[in-house]
Simulated scan of single mutants.
Amino acid sequence: MVVSRKETPPNINIYINDTKLQQRDQFKYLGALISSDGRDTTEISSRIAQSKTMFRRMKNILTNPHMSIETRKRVLECYFEPILMYVCETWIISKQTRGMLEATEMCFLRRMMRIPWIAKKTNDTVLSETKTKRALINKMRKRQATFFGHIMRRERQEHLVTTGMFMGRRGRGRLLVRKRLTGWRLG
Rank of each mutant, 00 (worst) to 15 (best):
R24P: 02
S68Y: 10
M112N: 11
I118C: 13
R98M: 09
S94D: 06
T130H: 12
G171Q: 12
S4K: 00
N138R: 11
T182A: 13
I83H: 04
M1R: 00
A103G: 05
V75I: 15
A135P: 04
F108M: 10
T163S: 13
S35Y: 08
Y29W: 10
I61V: 08
E158W: 06
K73D: 00
R72N: 01
R39Y: 04
I61T: 02
R114H: 05
I115M: 05
M152R: 13
Q22K: 15
I115E: 00
K133M: 15
T42P: 02
N60V: 04
R170P: 06
K133V: 15
M54E: 03
G38R: 06
Q50R: 15
T19V: 09
K121C: 04
T132S: 10
L62V: 08
R169P: 04
Y79H: 08
D124W: 15
E81C: 02
R169N: 06
M100T: 01
D124L: 14
T71A: 01
E7Q: 06
K133I: 13
P82H: 13
R111A: 00
T125G: 12
K121F: 04
Q157N: 07
R180F: 14
R39H: 11
T90M: 05
S51H: 07
R56T: 00
K121P: 03
F108Q: 01
I12A: 05
L84Y: 01
I92Q: 09
R143C: 11
T19Q: 10
L175W: 09
K179W: 09
R134W: 01
L33P: 03
T8P: 00
R111T: 05
R154P: 01
K28Q: 13
A103H: 11
K133N: 13
S51M: 11
L181A: 12
P9E: 00
G164D: 15
S51W: 00
A119E: 02
F27G: 11
T8F: 06
R74N: 08
S46F: 15
M100P: 05
A119R: 12
Y15E: 04
F108P: 06
I93C: 14
M67V: 04
L30N: 10
T41P: 02
L33R: 14
M106V: 09
Q144L: 07
K73S: 00
W91F: 14
L136I: 14
K6E: 00
P10K: 09
N64R: 03
R5T: 06
S36C: 12
N60M: 05
M112G: 07
V161T: 08
T163E: 13
N123R: 10
A49L: 03
R98G: 11
R111W: 08
N17F: 05
T122F: 15
I69T: 01
I93F: 15
Q22V: 12
F55E: 01
